[in-house]
Computed example of a mutant assay.
Amino acid sequence: MRAAILTTQPGTLDIVDIEIDLPGPGEVLVRTAACGLCHSDIHILDGAIPHQRPAVLGHEASGTVVAVGPGVTRVAPGDHVVACLSVFCGRCPQCARGRTWLCSDKAATMRDADGPPRLSRNGQPVNASSWIGGLAEQMLLHQNAVVAIDPAMPLDVAAVIGCAVTTGVGAAWRSADIRAGETVAVLGCGGIGLNIVQGARLRGAGRVIAIDLQPAKRELARALGATDTIDAASYDAVAEVLALTAGFGVDHAFEAIGLEATIGQAVAMTSPGGTAYVVGVTPMTATVNVPGYALWGQGKTVRGVHMGSNTFTTDMPRYVDLYLQGRLRIDELISRRIPLTEVNDAYDALRRGEVARSVVTF
């Protein structure tokens, strides 16, 4: 099958033929329909996040189940599914506490090292990035990495639920548990930030302030539910947020970019007693400096958010229902649909901030 693989860091993706095995115990073979391109992939391409190689990138994917291995109970051949990198073992201390998105034994969902690899090329194992490897014509996954969805949902749109929607809406709903009337700021209006915006809207936030450098993204944020927008290229975002909130700041500030500077801004624009959420993926070497007084003197909280604190096996079908009801808007997030051969150009466009989401369709 054709796949986009990374062989060097920093590097670009090579479109090559690789081999995929048949599903073993607990495994699911999926014919890939679509895979969204996420900004965190760029950190891998640029070498900011070390990664095992060679690897098939892509973790925001959807498709149709082709075959299942022994012991699979979650899905069946013919099911439409969305994959999620929050694959879970179901047995570790984190899973036992209900924090499946923080599963500490994902290795239990992988094959033994002395067995045949799921993916290979010329007899050598190929890694599936984030336990998914969505930039390939097929995916071989553990059953705890997929969830069946309503077949009425278009699969090219469903792919975006796999990361952008689950992380963004989940950050607003599960991590922050926004209440009606509360104030929200979102720094960065890419795929995840835009979903935080509409997650806040769906929760009834009183004010949703979207902050971005790009006019088109600010316009899209307003269309998805932002009550105010700030041009971060021309204005001091912190000062503008404070002005919009009578000097008080916001109850919830979400950083959805992954930069040290904007994380600091999120803390600064948070009201006393409020919370700043670090949702954006930073390079592995990045550090966050928080003024001590903001913590002990103002009672602010800084919270990390991983994949929207999701329970994807129940969250994703709900997001599908909301989309089919016209309440969750995803079509607007997809800037372009492309073939696999254009993946490197699409990542470059994402680097330049030109798109919210590009989706590779198969």
Rank of each mutant, 00 (worst) to 15 (best):
R121H: 05
G274C: 07
V355L: 14
D212H: 09
I161S: 07
R118A: 14
V157K: 15
S86D: 07
A268Y: 01
P50A: 10
T229W: 02
L333W: 03
G168D: 10
Q94N: 10
A159Q: 03
T285I: 12
I18S: 07
S86I: 03
T227H: 15
L102M: 14
A200C: 04
L295V: 15
I334V: 11
N344R: 11
D156N: 11
V279N: 00
V320Y: 10
V288T: 13
R337C: 08
T301S: 14
A159S: 03
A294N: 15
L57S: 12
R207A: 13
A61E: 06
A210P: 07
A210W: 03
T282N: 12
R352C: 00
R351Q: 03
K106S: 12
L333G: 06
V359K: 07
G90Q: 13
C38H: 03
P339S: 01
R97A: 15
G36D: 00
A113K: 08
S40L: 12
S130I: 07
L85I: 06
C38S: 03
P70R: 11
A276H: 05
S120C: 11
I15Q: 13
H43G: 07
P339C: 00
A294T: 13
P117C: 09
E137N: 12
V267H: 09
A226G: 08
T314F: 07
L13D: 12
I230T: 02
T8Y: 01
G69D: 04
F254M: 01
H142P: 04
G168R: 13
P283R: 09
G168T: 02
H51P: 02
C35E: 05
L324I: 01
E342M: 12
T8D: 13
L194F: 02
M153T: 09
I178N: 02
F312D: 01
I161H: 04
V87W: 04
R352Q: 09
A185E: 00
V82A: 05
P154V: 10
R201T: 12
P116L: 15
L350T: 15
L259D: 01
G26R: 10
A346P: 08
D177L: 02
T262Q: 07
H39F: 08
G90K: 11
A246N: 12
S40W: 11
P125V: 04
G168W: 11
P317M: 08
L220M: 15
I338R: 09
S335I: 13
G168V: 05
G115F: 02
V68G: 08
P125R: 06
A164Y: 01
S358N: 11
G26L: 12
G58C: 14
V197Y: 01
V288R: 06
G299F: 11
R327P: 05
P125S: 06
D236M: 08
I211C: 08
I192W: 10
M1N: 15
V146H: 12
